[in-house]
Design a binder for these strands. Structure first.
Lengths: 194, 194, 194, 194
DNA sequence: AATTAAACGAGACGGTACGTCGAGTCTTATC
DNA sequence: GATAAGACTCGACGTACCGTCTCGTTTAATT
């Protein structure tokens, strides 16, 4: 019983260790299912089958479907969201676009926040794993290009614009768009915004 | 058979007409369920019970859960989204906040776009009923306060900022926030944005 | 409201008179559905459609599916079950076989008695319309060929044998079978049976 | 998937074995529902609830309502239908009466043959599990008391008489009745019947 | 090498909701 | 007042996933 725990200890636990191959296969399968079917269409049974793994093996690691999906999305998001050393505005916007454009992210991001609307545990998890990393990235931009601006506002403006472009209006988030968003922040920062 | 059709005809159709009371009761029940349980927690069975109506009566009008929810959300959104005669920037932002803050909208908005990500029919429906009205509202702002700006960009910036504030970071979308967003657009518009 | 009544009065009732064509069409359709689909497979909706009649028209004449089926079966049974003037044993058995062999009767007879097992109103109806006519027919045989026998016993033996042959074992109820059954009664009657 | 199969193998199958307690509870509940509500009144939902079991657990074992009922009826019938060592005519008739008089059998027997009229798969099943055992029992009688008679005829006569008495005319199948039926066969057998 | 303890595959289990179907009733407009 | 059409309530259907539970079977680390 008791799922999830055995991750963060160095001491070898008794009994057969969990298969790292299963971890990988499950997360990969989850990302594929999300990309193809979206969050609602994803089933734990389907993930397990695709991963060549028993359902128990999934539930031993993740308590529920939402947890599993959070981890899969975090994987898809963390590479692009790596803190930029530069703090260049356009690079930050470009990173946000890259994060949301990954197909498994498109299929799951909004659904996770939709569920979080009503499930406080999931909300906390999703804030910690998805919102905060993005926030940290945008903070770099704020420091460099709009040092006097309210960081919360800049975050909502920049991340909101990208999210809305990619997942709501679904128009291309191309280079001109990236430049315009970065430019907007710079322009607004001039007379002090906030 | 064949659900939904009998809406837009003036000619009296044969047979017993659909009960308008049932329409109302179903939509009201849907809004209540969305506010309390969110999209994933809403069940057609629950809506029907709460509306004091048989499940078949729901399915006769709406093919799928998503369709029903679109209509319920549109109802919650259309009053605040009424086109502003003025085009005053802050009024527009305030209207967007009001639209998304309605509890049934909070519980459903993201979920609809999440499903739309993977269901083209729903995507079209949701664009027509939810995205376009918001877009028209923001267009007023563009015309008056940022006539040279790219309307698509302004829409993503303004609607994105509100959406992100209300549904993602879930911080208060209060008057200062409203002013700041409007101010940002004005500031960015000065040197021509777009 | 109030279905069924307007059959047995000579006085012309007010309003539009019931269509005799509808009566016929409904009963014919019922017999066809019974023959093709059996009792469980028959639906009132299907009968109405096939009869080219609205469902209301069916329910105005018969309170329930079982009632309708009783009448349809009685129609299929009453011609063969006409009282034999002769009282010839083999003719009686042959008549019983003919009554049960009609396809709409095969599909419905047992089902009606199955339901009657648990529904006293149906049981009364089915006894009056189906059991008693058969009983009267067999009584003729008893009088002539087994005058000292218990009529109840002869009825159960003869009608039971035919019923079992046609609807349970489903072997051919041919002329040899008819002769053997009649012969059995005669043989048993000799030393007085009952 | 694939219901029913895992009955007749000795080799232990993979996965959690089916609960024998559930088997028992389901069949018991089925017999109770049949006795109280008859075949038409029995619902899988009701059986599951009464058995304290999920609906899926029923459907995993039996494909359809009719299959489940066959098994329940066979259980109610097999004790009385145990082959008589003696071959005493009255004992055989008494056994048939006892088999059909069980309340779950009364409520279901005719309904099964009614459905079998139109469903060949059910017909085969019902013949194998219900008709043949009764036939074997009556065969004993034939051998001893009517060795020259056609066994098919004797079966239809004896089983038919009992069935008709118990389930159609619904008059008491008491000792006098039992004696009379046995006596009829004996009398008819004298001059050779068949 | 034998033991131990947990992971693992398989699949049954209790639940809950799905979307459909049929029974029987009710409500229109038309005949 | 009968009729056609079709909406309505109710209750069950059989299916699909959820997340949990038992099985029998590996697989490491420990004795």
């Amino acid at each position: 019983m008791a799922p999830v725990p055995p991750a963060p200890n160095g001491a070898p636990r008794p009994g057969r260790p969990r298969s790292p191959a299963a971890d990988r296969a499950i997360l990969d399968a989850t990302r594929q299912q999300l990309a193809e079917l979206g969050y609602a269409g994803l089933t734990v049974e389907g993930v397990a089958t695709r991963a060549g793994v028993a359902k128990t093996t999934v539930y031993r690691r993740w308590t529920a479907k939402a947890d599993l999906v959070v981890d899969a999305v975090v994987e898809g998001v963390q590479a692009p969201l790596q803190p930029q050393p530069s703090g260049d505005g356009e690079a930050v916007v470009r990173a946000l676009v890259a994060a949301l454009a990954a197909p498994e992210v498109r299929g799951a991001y909004l659904a996770l926040f939709a569920e979080a609307q009503v499930d406080p545990v999931l909300r906390a998890r999703v804030h910690e794993r998805l919102v905060h990393p993005a926030r940290r990235l945008v903070a770099a931009l704020t420091h460099v290009e709009a040092p006097d601006a309210d960081p919360d506002l800049v975050f909502d403006l920049v991340a909101g614009a990208v999210l809305h472009r990619v997942l709501i209006t679904a128009r291309p988030a191309d280079e001109p768009f990236v430049r315009q968003v970065a430019q907007t922040i710079r322009a607004a920062a001039r007379p002090a915004l906030g």
